[in-house]
Nucleic acid binder design. Structure first.
Ligand SMILES: [Mn+2]
Ligand SMILES: [Mn+2]
Ligand SMILES: [Mn+2]
Ligand SMILES: [Mn+2]
Lengths: 219, 219
DNA sequence: ATAAAAGTTTAGGTTTGTCTAAATTAAATT
DNA sequence: AATTTAATTTAGACAAACCTAAACTTTTAT
């Protein structure tokens, strides 16, 4: 089997590559994993020997078919555990990521299967991220970044693309969660921030940084 | 915090010492952990430096107060996860141990607390082993080994002291589980095996090996 | 086209947890 | 009490996963 370290590299490559599309750089990985580039080079040589990645020295790395299968399995487990923590153990969405980072490495096919059943085959995790199916498919959803809405346009929050507690707690404070109704009240061209009304109620100004991390569907 | 390897040593010392009472030998540990005695010596030096054990070279090892606290926390997590797997995910009692061995190392106080609540503060795990409380107490239950019963005496199975799938599957086959009513029909002095009737029904002969691993309370 | 800068890899270490083989200590036998 | 045997520890290695410093490619700027 694969070690926890290997699994974390595979997951990081998957995420940085934009679901397997592009090649990923050594420094990109070292940033994401909080290791040094030298350590990444070592690991890439190893993953390459195991045929989990295509690795061309100095030119980046991509997952093989097998590597992608492995990545999706880990992500499936991570997101199922997040659902479990929120729905069954009353965790909040800002408390789950760190724990799921540990649980995703527990090895048992039966466990994942049964957990999925127990949760009623959920489609998305508490942050709105889709859960890969047992067959290894990752359902795509049509959705747009909040940043792309024009004045007057409405949307319902379906996904947030950052699981850091600090970010999620900020959303808690302004009153944004999955399912929240938003409408763009005004646009501030100076810095591309938007004034957003929340649940047809009070409005806040969100920075373009934040706007890029929130996704909505048409209401 | 403590590594998975350290936690496994602490748990092994706890179990071999009979709940902290006696000193434990290097070979005893190497047997239980499937490592070589030399590796055990190394680890004991390390645990001793961390004040988790009292270690006197050539004379065995015992857990410190702190070591016992750590041991009971790990055992608490192990047994709570076993309950979860059986009661919520429909695992059988012979399927849970291996998975719980992994889950017991997940670090999150909140997780243990919430899991305990979710399960309704269970007292015993699927093998009848008591679950240490949050305060670190291990409730003792009066119970006797099946081996100690005389002819005609009855008992209700409350605990089995071996979690190997092969053993538990053997019990499944003869029809013994937690709560099963047993009565000693006859004693075979030659090898100390007993003929046991199961649920007032068909009877089987159990070896003294097996009899030592099954515990009963008075019906 | 060359030189500087940025990104990446290699060389050589460290820590953790394991191993084998040799040395040491304790226990059991004579 | 001396000797043999068994248990345990130490010495020296190794793999995994990380590090720093130095060397090497690739990219960017002059
Ligand atoms: Mn997450
Ligand atoms: Mn998530
Ligand atoms: Mn168990
Ligand atoms: Mn158990």
């Amino acid at each position: 089997m694969h070690s926890t370290a290997e699994e974390n590299y595979i997951k990081a490559i998957y995420k940085l590559s934009g679901n397997g599309a592009n090649a990923v750089s050594t420094t990109g990985l070292s940033d994401m994993l909080a290791t040094k580039p030298a350590s990444v080079s070592d690991m890439l040589r190893k993953l390459s020997a195991k045929d989990l990645v295509h690795y061309v020295k100095y030119h980046g790395v991509q997952l093989t078919e097998e590597g992608q299968r492995v990545a999706l399995k880990i992500i499936r487990k991570h997101r199922l555990w997040e659902v479990f923590l929120v729905q069954k153990l009353n965790f909040t969405w800002d408390e789950v990521h760190e724990v799921a980072e540990q649980m995703e490495h527990v090895k048992s096919e039966l466990l994942v299967q049964r957990l999925d059943e127990f949760l009623g085959h959920p489609r998305v995790d508490p942050h709105g991220d889709p859960i890969p199916t047992e067959a290894g498919e990752l359902p795509e959803m049509e959705q747009r970044a909040l940043a792309s809405l024009e004045v007057e346009q409405k949307g319902v929050v379906c996904r947030v693309k950052d699981s850091q507690p600090a970010f999620l707690q900020y959303l808690n404070r302004v009153g944004i969660q999955i399912g929240t109704q938003l409408q763009v009240v005004d646009k501030i061209p100076y810095d591309n921030s938007l004034e957003i009304s929340i649940n047809k109620n009070k409005s806040v100004i969100l920075s373009s940084d934040v706007l890029e991390k929130i996704f909505v569907i048409n209401p």
